[in-house]
């Protein structure tokens, strides 16, 4: 099994890596590139902790092969804040205490950002269904949903 050379863009950085043919993008991010912000909760696409954007589409990095990233763009939690400035969703998650242990938080933030890019004014129900693939065992989701809806409102006002 020989390694595959992949050239890709991750968080706007041109990136190259070698990976095995059956190695997932999640393993590449975490084990080869040191981007451990994406978490593995299940490895089967059932928990959403490894949510990343692939060519602008929300996916589970555990269900993408590293080799598939060739020529594509990947966005992870490490690229969400700009310099010292947190994304409004990150700030609202803090303000609403929308995390307890924090392991699901990166995945929720990536998924919520994807939601607001497509639906700037989601209803509570839309937010809940969009985020149903992100499991949280600590919060009961209440404060997460509040944070997402509040961030949406703030982002709409900011235009």
């Amino acid at each position: 099994m020989s390694a595959i050379h992949v050239t890709t863009t991750i968080n706007n950085d041109a990136t190259e890596f070698l990976c095995a043919p059956d190695e997932t993008l999640l393993d590449v991010l975490r084990d080869r590139l040191g981007l451990t912000g994406s978490k593995e909760g299940c490895g089967s696409g059932d928990c959403g902790a490894c949510s990343v954007m692939l060519d602008g589409r929300l996916v589970c990095a555990c269900l993408v092969l590293g080799a598939e990233a060739e020529g594509r763009t990947v966005a992870t939690i490490e690229g969400m804040a700009v310099g010292e400035t947190l994304h409004p969703l990150q700030r609202k998650f803090l303000e609403h205490a929308a995390l307890q242990c924090g392991i699901c938080t990166p995945g929720f933030l990536i998924a919520a950002k994807a939601l607001l890019e497509r639906h700037p004014d989601p209803t509570e129900e839309e937010a809940r269904y969009w985020l149903a693939g992100n499991l949280c065992r600590c919060t009961g989701y209440d404060k997460i949903i509040r944070a997402v809806l509040d961030a949406a409102a703030e982002m709409r006002e900011a235009g």
Partner: peptide, 9 residues
């Protein structure tokens, strides 16, 4: 079929 993430794939 599956979540928003799964729908992307």
């Amino acid at each position: 079929i599956g979540s928003t993430q799964i729908q992307g794939r």
